[in-house]
Design a protein around this nucleic acid. Structure first.
Lengths: 105, 105
DNA sequence: ACACACTACCTTACATTGTCAAGTACTAAA
DNA sequence: TTTAGTACTTGACAATGTAAGGTAGTGTGT
């Protein structure tokens, strides 16, 4: 899978995943992997960035299946950010699709 | 416009543009700009990369409107490469669109 | 003749983001 | 007690787009 295509889009997928319910990192790796190939080394730094930018708040919770989980909760700022990001993606993808369709004629 | 979304996609747009007819750099900057914002500093290094990878061959041609133009012609290798890249992009964009649609429910 | 705008190309320093590989540590099953 | 699965972290690296600057040819207006 082309690594470049994912740039910026993984952020969108992670944010959208967390909008509905708080999730922890390892869970997100699996969730995002259903859409596009991704590995831990990509997701954890991304979560840290989004937290530093105040789009996420975090809290720890014990687990019976391993070490404590760090849960991510989206903030009001995160909500605004993801809505804007989604609009941008849709607009971008549509423009590219239109271009490719034109070229096919 | 989100700079990250463009990663890899500009390459696709440039390649697709040159499939039909040979084009020169400055012309490509304007062509690609119709689809997504882009500047010269992005396109010229990209053209060089694709030429180094033997996806393009180049030749110079005089112009009455300014300095000589460097034309880019796609090679057989370039054709194969762009077809594969387009398939990957379509597959990728569909997966992301599906995911976003799911989240909307 | 001179300045300016437009065409056309190139390059360097930089920022961002994804990959790979390694490491830490807890729980449970073989 | 070794192994597998869960869970988080980090550092060195690669790829690609951006910004800003430079060089040079052609044509227009003053």
């Amino acid at each position: 899978m082309n690594a470049q295509f994912k740039k910026g889009v993984l952020e969108l997928i992670v944010l959208k995943s967390v909008v509905n319910k708080d999730m922890y990192g390892y869970e997100l790796v699996e969730e995002v992997s259903k859409v596009v190939d991704v590995n831990e080394g990509t997701i954890y730094p991304l979560l840290k960035r989004l937290t530093n930018d105040h789009h996420f708040e975090t809290y720890l919770k014990e687990s019976t299946e391993g070490p404590p989980r760090k849960y991510y909760h989206i903030t009001a700022s995160g909500i605004m950010y993801v809505e804007n990001l989604e609009d941008e993606w849709v607009e971008f993808a549509n423009r590219v699709s239109e271009f490719l369709k034109e070229k096919k004629k």
